[in-house]
Design a protein around this nucleic acid. Structure first.
Length: 289
DNA sequence: TTGGGTCAAGGAGTC
DNA sequence: GACTCCTTGACCCAA
């Protein structure tokens, strides 16, 4: 069985989980508190909408708690929003919707710069703490491995050494291949060293296959989820024909979906669809909105 | 009220 | 060297 999901916002409702603010306004406690409450309220609106349509995955916006890992964050967000987050988590579990987050390109645990590593770890700890409060052990913290710094082997070693002590982050962390640097086989190797699973992104894989067919890449990535006894997660998207290679299209093309389904060959997976059209991109995959 | 420039942060690749 | 792309558009000022 394949379950589907989409990221951060629902265009139909509409509702979102990614409202943020400029750093210059972070001092305004009431503003920040209001935005966080709106993001959590958005999540609470989206979850039942998804469940009614059989959409079993949802990715929360990284700015659910905007600037949560920034030293200038103006109050104790765990204490102030803990109850709301626990309630949202209870709702997600009662509806059987799996949650995830995907910190962005600035998160570089393998960086050569200590300050970049520290900021990256602070952000990863924020996500893990948020998942703790939500309380669903199958939540997934999706991360790219970042830069290669002209020496992949040394960077992978550095990445592993930096992450190994982060036991609470590792409870949720999964590594994803990207479209130009790290291939599926490389992230599977690093993930295995850390005892965590790997996410194969079918679109990135098509741009950066590392000599593997999609079927072979899935064989590697799906097997890594045994360490957590969880359903494997994958990503799917299509190329925007108007833009550079790697840019996500508004929707998913049926041929890309067909290629993934064929490569899965009947195996179970949770597939996150990354498209500008959000939930509308699930329509060509058979979801009725 | 709206249009458009700008926004914490990194790195790789293209032009 | 400037621009684009990646997670995700949203914020916010000027008119």
């Amino acid at each position: 069985m394949i379950r589907l999901g989409y990221p951060t916002q629902n265009l139909t409702l509409p509702a979102g989980t990614n409202r943020s603010l400029r750093l210059a306004n972070l001092h305004d406690k009431n503003k920040v508190r209001g935005l966080v409450q709106e993001n959590i309220a958005g999540l609470i609106r989206i979850l039942p909408w998804n469940a009614e349509r059989g959409i079993g995955l949802f990715r929360m916006g990284q700015a659910m708690i905007p600037f949560a890992s920034h030293p200038g964050f103006p109050y104790d967000w765990e204490e102030q929003h803990g109850d709301e987050l626990r309630r949202a988590g209870e709702l997600a579990r009662s509806l059987d919707v799996r949650l995830s987050m995907h910190p962005g390109q600035y998160i570089q645990p393998g960086s050569l710069k200590p300050e970049v590593v520290e900021r990256s770890l602070a952000e990863l700890r924020y996500v893990a703490r948020l998942f703790d409060l939500i309380g669903s052990p199958d939540s997934v913290l999706v991360l790219h491995m970042g830069g290669a710094y002209e020496d992949k082997a040394a960077t992978a070693t550095r990445f592993i050494e930096t992450m190994r002590p982060e036991t609470n982050v590792l409870r949720y962390l999964a590594l994803e291949n990207d479209e130009r640097v790290w291939t599926v086989s490389e992230i599977v190797e690093t993930a295995s060293s850390l005892g965590i699973p790997a996410i194969a992104d079918a679109f990135h894989h098509s741009l950066n296959p590392g000599g593997l067919a999609l079927r072979e890449a899935l064989d590697l990535a799906l097997a890594t989820w045994k360490v957590r006894q969880q359903r494997p997660k994958l990503h799917l998207s299509s190329q925007d024909p108007e833009k550079q290679p790697g840019a996500h299209a508004y929707s998913v093309y049926p041929e890309d979906w067909g290629t993934l389904v064929e490569a899965l060959a009947g195996r179970d997976a949770d597939v996150m669809v990354e498209a500008k059209g959000k939930e509308y991109a699930l329509i060509p995959l058979g979801v009725e909105l």
